[in-house]
Structure formats: structure tokens, C-alpha cells
Design a binder for these strands. Structure first.
Lengths: 250, 250
DNA sequence: TTAACAATTATCATTTTGTTAATTATATAT
DNA sequence: ATATATAATTAACAAAATGATAATTGTTAA
């Protein structure tokens, strides 16, 4: 492939917007208060080869070049593991950023992925070596930084995609333990919506029993969120596609 | 960029799954019967340079290599215009196909896009020169062919994406004239759903008046679909995000 | 013993839906 | 001219879901 009739890119990378939903307050017998966080890394001053690094010192999305034997998805998985020690989580490709000029090093294509990481996986991260370069920020905080490359644009797109995914698919399961209470689910959903039918306790407690993709765990309760004890629910494997044309608007 | 520490792809392409919704039967004063179609091209025996073409004779998605001065999205737009003469339509990127081995010519990355083309734009296509190599097929037909490369997989993903988009966003507008009747909207939606609340006339006629993203065109009717004349509706620019957690299931 | 509190159930008026039927307006066939 | 067929639309009413507010339950901790 030497005499090419077409242009070849100068680099092919995979970036990952790692989201987690952190429990801000965790008191015994109390429903959690959660917030949506994104993981950023601070770019090093020097490359591994010892050269001055591009966009050094700026906060950026984790990611890196795709290796010869892998595709972008595998590269994203590998980078995520290297950065955080996390494996086997929910990750998806959601966009390509390939505008000429987006990276001063040349025509570098970024495959943007997002990942949903349950909170408890992050305990490992805290113990890892370069944890001082990796931080979680609320989305609002993150967007106020002077981020590297076009990462501000990528993050905005990722937030929009993940919001839609949490509300219109069963992706919330990736932020929850296998068995959860209604208030835990409510806490996850409330990080991305203000819908009163979800925020209102009574309405949501009634509704959860009618959702075909959630089932009650029979004869089992937890005191995680209440002294009285609360029923446990789990997602079954039903996937839902509800048209906006049949929803209620009032 | 000669001494690279990372692999560079052998080619960077953009493929487009062009969907249209064709009116199968169009009698005067009668609601249309529509079906979802995808556009395929038959790959030529020879390349422009006169060499034997890869995957020659097979049906494939339109697309081609990204040029040096454009990104994949612009390439998809350009290819679509070259193939069909269509401009200014709804097109989106939905996936990357970059598995090593997917293209025998090397490590060729495909950026998969889908486009939604209103029927009336296609009349131009019929008049174009190489129309004999371009055909519309129902999705079921298309998936039975021995398609080039991994295009079967790409098409399946595209259908899933477009179904979700038509039902959960206002993308149906791209298959309809600016002002449309309830039965025309119903015909579009029925190509991707069997939901009885949409298929049932009375229920849907009642519902359309309550949808916040659709408004009545005052004092204007059409006889396109009925001798009696039917009210006209239009989409306003409201975008909707309805959680599955607040929908009705019965 | 009691206050506090999350979870859950109860109540009831209001709204929406499912279902079936009736009405309307008009082109076409007779 | 008149009747017929047909799509759009409205009507009617029982059944179901929702909104709003209140009451009940079970447990810990003061």
C-alpha cells in the first residue's frame, strides 16, 4: 500500500469519557444522594520518550493510540484498564472526532467512547499508583477547565448521550448493585432528570411495581436505606423501546 | 511523522446507510402504505484505474475513501451527493468498523453513517446516470444478499439505530412533507413499530392533538388522503426526552 | 417510651386510555 | 340526482392510571 490514491491518517486514537455516579452522602439507614461525575487525567509534562508533551498540564480525557493488533474499542478498554485497573464494564462508542486541525500533531482521529463505572469499582482506582493524576469532577466543574484538544466538545456530547441512555434504556443498572431499593434507583435517575414522576416518592414507589423490566426480589429486604427495611428490586433482561408518540404530556 | 510509535491505518472510509420510506401504494384520497427501504449499490467489476475491483459484483453500502481536506462526515455527504445527487438531508454518524481483517486490502476503517432521505428527493436519483447500479431494497431483502465486507452487520446496526431514532426523537419529520396528516405520520411510524396505540386510528387521532412537539396547521386541509379532507399538522422545534420509567405498560 | 424517619399503602378526585360506535364530508358509481 | 363507499373525526362510557395528600408501618436511637 505505498502508492496511495487517498490520504492516510497520522494517528488513530481512542478516548474514553468515564462516568460514575458517586454517593455524596452516605448515612446509615438513609437514601443516598448521588451525583454524576466524569474522570479526567492531567497530561504529563513529558512523554514516555522524554520529549515535551503536547497540551501538557491540561486536564483531558483518558485515552491513547490504537495499537497494531487491536481496534479502537479494544484500545479504549486497554487504556481504561491501564489508567484505572477497571475491567468488564459497560463501554460504548459514541462518536468520531476527525476534524483536520483538532490535534496539532497531524491528522489524528479520535474515537470517542463513554464508559459507565459503578462506584465500587473505583475503590481500586484510589489505590493505584498514579492516582494523583486522575480525578473525578462533576460535569459542570469539568466543563469550566481549559481542557486539552477538543475534549470540551467531546464531553458535552458524551453527557447528552449518557443522559438519553440512562433515561431511555436500562443503563441505570450499570450504576447500581444487582439488587437495589427504589430510592437507590431514584437517586441514580435524579442525577440526570428533574421529572417529578421520578422524583416524587409515592409516585415512583407505585410505578416501580408496574415496570416490566424491573422485578421484585421476593422475600428479601435491606436496611441500607431505611431502618424499617426496604424491598429489593432487580433489572430483568428485557429491553424497552417506548415511542414518544405514546407517552403522556401534562 | 516518519518514525511512528504507533500504527497508522491503511485507509479511512465513510459508508452511508441511506434509508427512505417509500409509498408502496398511492391511490387518490387514500392513506399511504409505506415501507422502510435501504439503498445499495452494486460494486463495479473494475476500479477507476482499471484494476479488478475487490468484492466486485456484490451489493454494498455506498461510500468511499475520505479525502485529505475533509473529515469522514463531509466525505459521507460528498459520496452521497455523487451517488444520488441528494444534498441537505438528515445524516448522522452511528458507528465505527475497524476490526483488523474486515477489508482484505489492509487496515481500513469505516465510519458508518445513516441518512434519512424523503421520498421526493429520490425522484432525482432515478434520473441519474448510473441508476442501474443503485437500487432500493426492503431491509429484509437486503439482509438476504451476500453483501460486501461486513456490510450486513453494519446494516443491522443501522436499522436498530434508525428505529430507535424514529420512535424516540422527532426524526419522522425527515420522512414527511412539512405539513402532513395524521395518517401520513401513522404510515411512517408503522414501518418500524406495531404498537397498537399508534396503529389504531381513533387512539392516534386523539393522541396527536396532545403531543407537544406537533401542532395543528390552522384552517388548512388536504384531500391527499381522504375525500372528506384531513387536517394538517407540523412538527415544531421541540425536542423530547421521555424516560422509560414514566411510560405506561399494559 | 417516644420521637424521628424511610418505606409503603390508602384514598379519592381527575385525567387518560381502550373500545365501540356514530357522524361528517366528499368523490364516485349507479 | 341519488346512493354508496371511505377516511377523518367526534362521541360516549367503562376501565385504568395519575396527582395529591394523608395515613400506616417497622425500626433505631434518644
Amino acid at each position: 500500500m505505498t502508492d496511495k490514491k487517498y490520504r492516510t491518517p497520522d494517528g488513530y486514537t481512542a478516548d474514553i469519557s468515564v462516568f460514575t455516579i458517586l454517593t455524596e452522602e452516605l448515612k446509615a439507614f438513609t437514601p443516598p444522594i448521588m451525583s454524576l461525575k466524569i474522570m479526567l487525567i492531567k497530561r504529563a509534562d513529558l512523554t514516555i520518550e522524554g520529549d515535551a508533551n503536547i497540551e501538557a498540564g491540561k486536564w483531558a480525557l483518558p485515552g491513547g493510540f490504537v495499537q497494531p493488533d487491536e481496534d479502537a474499542y479494544q484500545a479504549a478498554e486497554r487504556e481504561l484498564t491501564e489508567e484505572t485497573g477497571i475491567t468488564g464494564i459497560h463501554m460504548k462508542h459514541f462518536g468520531v472526532y476527525d476534524k483536520p486541525g483538532r490535534d496539532p500533531r497531524g491528522w489524528i482521529i479520535s474515537n470517542a467512547h463513554y464508559a459507565i463505572v459503578p462506584e465500587h469499582h473505583l475503590l481500586k482506582r484510589k489505590a493505584s499508583d498514579d492516582a494523583d493524576q486522575v480525578e473525578l469532577f462533576s460535569v459542570d466543574e469539568a466543563l469550566q477547565f481549559d481542557l486539552a484538544f477538543d475534549h470540551k466538545q467531546i464531553i458535552k456530547a458524551a453527557v447528552s448521550v449518557i443522559t438519553r441512555e440512562i433515561l431511555q434504556t436500562t443503563a441505570a443498572k450499570n450504576f447500581l448493585p444487582k439488587e437495589f431499593t427504589y430510592s437507590e434507583l431514584q437517586a441514580v435517575l435524579s442525577t440526570v432528570t428533574k421529572d417529578s414522576a421520578i422524583l416524587n416518592e409515592q409516585a415512583f414507589a407505585r410505578k416501580i411495581k408496574a415496570l416490566p423490566f424491573i422485578e421484585l426480589v421476593e422475600g428479601k429486604t435491606t436496611q441500607r436505606t431505611s431502618k424499617k427495611g426496604a424491598k429489593l428490586y432487580r433489572f430483568n433482561n428485557m429491553e424497552i423501546l417506548k415511542p414518544i408518540y405514546t407517552a403522556r404530556y401534562n
